[in-house]
Design a binder for these strands. Structure first.
Lengths: 154, 154
DNA sequence: ACCATAAGGTTCAAATTTGAACCATCGGAC
DNA sequence: GTCCGATGGTTCAAATTTGAACCTTATGGT
């Protein structure tokens, strides 16, 4: 077992910053969405993804990949949203096993109502705190991280 | 209600990158730690914070702040770690209400055993994927984000 | 000293998450 | 055509997280 390459100061700062920012931002958004729109961030993201997809619908697996959640977790949340009338399930014609989640009119309405507050919270937590150059660099770096992990971790 | 300032392309890229990277990295580490050391990332972080604190111990509230978790969540995890013999509780002399969590010898041992694999995973997911300049910029930006949110959200 | 209020932790029930097991069905190899 | 290993989703129990309620002790103001 080789001597591990410990993190130097710069690396440690980046890592600790990442962990802290991650948790704080998540908390910030979770609270805002719950209070103002009665949605969890996951639920909000489901609506966003569906609203952006052609036909307002996506296959469950596809949706799970985009959200970076487990399949069972998605099943649960979609069921919740279904009970609330914000999404519906539709079976897939070409594959009997397949299920489409589809955003409903009420879902669109909820999303439209929630979006402004959410965007404001995102600005407050992340966007408006950084300069344009910093944002570009951030998007670039995190894009790289995302791409690597998506290919590495299946 | 004013027309909200929607995110432009740059801002959206930064935000989506943040959300995706956040989830993917968390997943990556959670899996690695669980498999190789039988710890959740939260538990690992508790050990790290305690190991870095003078006397190997911290007040519960202090610890909760550093971990960015709810107090009840911390109570739960510390209890788990206590059952496993990795930390202990000690009451505070100057404040009867206070409780110190303290890392045990077994805790040190577990941490020492888990650290190399964890560092490797952190490198694989985040550090080694970016250039030194990118890391510096990232640490800087996320530091700003963290500072703002820490002062804003109580 | 006395009170009102804040702070420190725990407890509790409810909501969520996770991974493994499971049940089909799909698709390609033979 | 038939078989077998992947795929798509759900289900289940167990682990975790959350926020509110609660109890106790500190503390600042009067």
């Amino acid at each position: 077992m080789d001597e591990p390459r410990w993190l130097n100061e710069r690396e440690m700062a980046a890592w600790r910053g990442f962990v802290a920012a991650t948790n704080l931002v998540a908390r910030h958004l979770e609270r805002q969405l719950k209070e103002d729109a009665g949605l969890s961030h996951t639920q909000y993201e489901i609506l966003v993804q569906l609203s952006a997809a052609p036909g307002g619908s996506l296959r469950m697996t596809d949706l799970a990949d985009r959200l970076v959640t487990s399949k069972s977790g998605l099943t649960y949340q979609v069921t919740q949203l279904e009970k609330a009338g914000l999404v519906g399930r539709r079976s897939c014609a070409s594959d009997v096993r397949g299920v489409f989640a589809e955003i409903t009119d009420a879902g669109w309405e909820t999303l439209r109502a929630a979006a402004p507050g959410h965007v404001a919270a995102v600005r407050e937590a992340l966007i408006d705190v950084l300069t344009p150059d910093q944002l570009t660099a951030l998007a670039d770096s995190l894009g790289t991280v995302t791409d690597r992990l998506r290919s590495t971790d299946r």
